[in-house]
């Protein structure tokens, strides 16, 4: 192991890790927003939109992110929609993640007994007040583990971003292996960088799940 070399390229990996983290976070936040809207549309049975959301969930969950990215990055410009790599990565992640997040939120909302809503309505709350104050807080607690699992999953999925020429961790490692044959050092740095991003997220997920399980719900 050539530690001098590692010291030299460390800033390079730092930059790449920051890119991975930044695009991943942006994509995940967008995905969560899409998921919340999608789940709300499904719950309120908004006529046409509900169909569209269901179809979208199916498509996004049944196709690989890499194929989605290729289509966005290389396919869409042919019909005049041009994106830069970073935007493409974020959009792809949001498209993929939106489907998963919709499912996570939907199952949380479904887990709240309809009597809870009726109870809120019978107290004179409006539909939207009942949703915000009664259903959503309970649904969030149920959804939290699935949402956190999605966060980790989506952050891992960013590892294909290099395919649309984003200079992320995979790109940097591949580059270093190809240019200087620094295989061992590159792989070590690659694994180390991903651990630094993913380990805290995964631990947060486990922690949340434990807390929620111990807290229990029960009326």
């Amino acid at each position: 192991m050539d530690w001098a070399y590692i010291g030299r390229v460390l800033p390079l990996y730092g930059k790449a890790a920051w890119l991975t983290f930044r695009t991943g976070t942006a994509g995940i936040l967008l995905a969560a927003a899409v998921g919340l809207l999608g789940a709300a549309a499904l719950r309120w049975r908004v006529p046409v939109i509900r169909r569209i959301v269901s179809a979208y969930v199916e498509v996004s969950r049944n196709t690989p992110l890499l194929v989605q990215l290729f289509f966005i990055y290389y396919g869409l410009p042919k019909i005049g929609i041009r994106t830069d790599p970073e935007f493409c990565g974020i959009a792809g992640l949001a498209f993929l993640g939106g489907g998963y997040m919709t499912e996570a939120f939907r199952s949380g909302i479904e887990a709240v007994d309809s009597l809870q809503e009726e109870s809120a309505l019978s107290l004179g709350l409006t539909q939207s007040q009942a949703f915000i104050h009664v259903i959503l807080p309970q649904a969030a607690a149920v959804s939290a583990p699935a949402v956190m699992a999605n966060v980790v999953f989506l952050m891992k999925e960013t590892s294909v971003f290099s395919a649309v020429s984003l200079m992320d961790l995979m790109f940097t490692a591949k580059d270093q292996i190809g240019l200087y044959y620094r295989t061992a050092e590159s792989l070590l740095l690659l694994v180390g960088a991903y651990l630094m991003i993913l380990l805290p997220l995964s631990m947060l997920g486990t922690f949340l799940e434990r807390r929620l399980r111990h807290a229990g719900s029960g009326t």
């Binding site: 490692a173 792989l187 694994v191 993913l198 995964s202």
Partner: peptide
């Protein structure tokens, strides 16, 4: 398995084993 992206695992297997 849960913490490492599959892409990284593929890389380790493909490049790592030849080196190691």
């Amino acid at each position: 398995i849960h913490i490492m992206p599959q892409m990284v695992l593929l890389f380790l297997m493909y490049f790592g084993t030849s080196r190691a």
